[in-house]
Simulated scan of single mutants.
Amino acid sequence: MIKSSAFIHTHLESNHRNNDVQLLLHHPEFDIYSLYRDDDNKDDSRACASSSTFIEYSTNLDNPYAFYAERTGTKTWGSEFVGTCNGLVCIAGKDIDLTTLVWNPSIRKFVVLPKSGVTFCHEYDHREVITFAFGYDRRANDYKVLRRVPCFLGGPLVSCQYEIWSLAKGSWKTLINTANDRHQERDIGNRFFEAGHPPAFVNGALHWLQANVSTWNISIVSFDISGEVFGKIAIPPKAETRKCFDFNRHCVVSRYRESLAFFESCRERRESGLVLLMNMWVMEEYGVAKSWTKLFAICLEGSICRLVGCSKSGEEVVLKLIVDDIVEYQSVNTKTKQVKNFHFDGECSTYYSVMGAFTENLVLLDRPNVFTY
């Protein structure tokens, strides 16, 4: 009974109802993962008015890609975090085949995705241009990986091929691309904004930013996981970041509670020195552009501001700052707008770059052809 799909799904739903959620953080330099308690510091005696801390929950999260690469003799340069959803984590290896894994840390099992039939343009470094995203198809109770492969046509024009892998089917399927109108859109990645961020999985769809290659105006692309169709959402009309080639501004789309959020930071030089202005909008009614509402606007010290993630309650937004070449974290209370110094209680906390909600479950327990490590 414990291996049945019905039991596993019920176990997952039970965890959500009981708010049994931790925070999964990725350390890109050492390529390791850690779990933290998200308890809003209610039991943290060290919490004070000027700072807050998340306590490390578990460090026993050995990266399965390292195990796989060593076992198979794969020549690699490490791996990248793709995303996490309902207790599963997707990882893409930095090897010639971009070996991709779906991993369940709770039961120490992972599945290796088959090689893709879609090739990349060999004139470019495929590790830089091929992108992945990970989400959950609630309608089919299935997990899917979206893979985007661009092929440059000359100048800024780019043609993209998309394919999707299904855990239930165990295979890739090529999609008809309707996301890029006449090859005029390009994803906004690390080349443009100094820091990437996983696509936001909200309302059953993945979301990421694209820019029109003629105007460089920014918009949000959506991909519905169940229907496997693309869409487009306008960014907040009052956002200051309108074009992607403005190196004084940084923007990212993310999840905030159950809603879609848009963050932007811009650098300004004042008499006191360089400051960062941080704005956050939330889409109160999904898909309705008029429902974008500004949640906060704050001023911070530093040269670079990057979003790390949000607490499960949504009351704290964690930011990573570069202040005088030193990494610092700060949190913003979305209710009081209070800014605090922020700490992750752990050995490798200084370099955490991505934080996502993590719920323990039993998915992959009943799957054939999985690795245990």
Rank of each mutant, 00 (worst) to 15 (best):
L295Y: 11
G189H: 01
A6T: 15
A297G: 09
I220W: 02
G346H: 04
T99M: 06
D40M: 11
K335S: 03
G231P: 06
R148L: 03
K320A: 04
W77S: 13
E185C: 03
R186A: 04
N180Q: 04
E316S: 14
R71K: 15
W292P: 01
M1L: 12
T178K: 12
E185W: 08
G231Q: 06
V252Q: 11
E271A: 13
T174D: 08
Y351P: 00
D325L: 09
P156G: 13
G346C: 08
G204I: 00
S159F: 09
R139S: 11
V129I: 02
G83I: 08
S58R: 10
L35V: 09
V221T: 05
E271Q: 14
K3N: 15
R127Y: 04
T74V: 15
D324E: 14
N248T: 14
D181A: 04
G117D: 11
H9Y: 14
N217D: 10
G93Q: 03
T241Q: 13
D40T: 07
D142P: 05
H9D: 15
G93Y: 01
E240Q: 13
R127S: 00
I8R: 07
G309A: 07
M280V: 04
E264P: 00
L319I: 09
N361Y: 05
E285N: 07
Y352A: 03
F245M: 11
V158S: 12
D62T: 14
E347P: 03
C348I: 11
R191Y: 06
N141K: 12
F110H: 13
T131L: 03
D324C: 12
R249S: 15
Y143E: 05
D345F: 06
I322R: 11
S106W: 02
K75H: 15
H250F: 15
E264G: 00
S159C: 12
V112F: 08
H207V: 02
Y329S: 03
P368Q: 02
A133H: 01
R127Q: 02
K243N: 12
D224R: 04
N63L: 03
C160L: 13
V308T: 09
F193A: 04
T350E: 14
P368T: 04
E284R: 10
N333A: 04
D20Y: 07
G287F: 02
N369A: 09
V317P: 00
V332G: 01
K169P: 05
I32G: 01
S291N: 01
V129S: 00
L276E: 07
F152H: 12
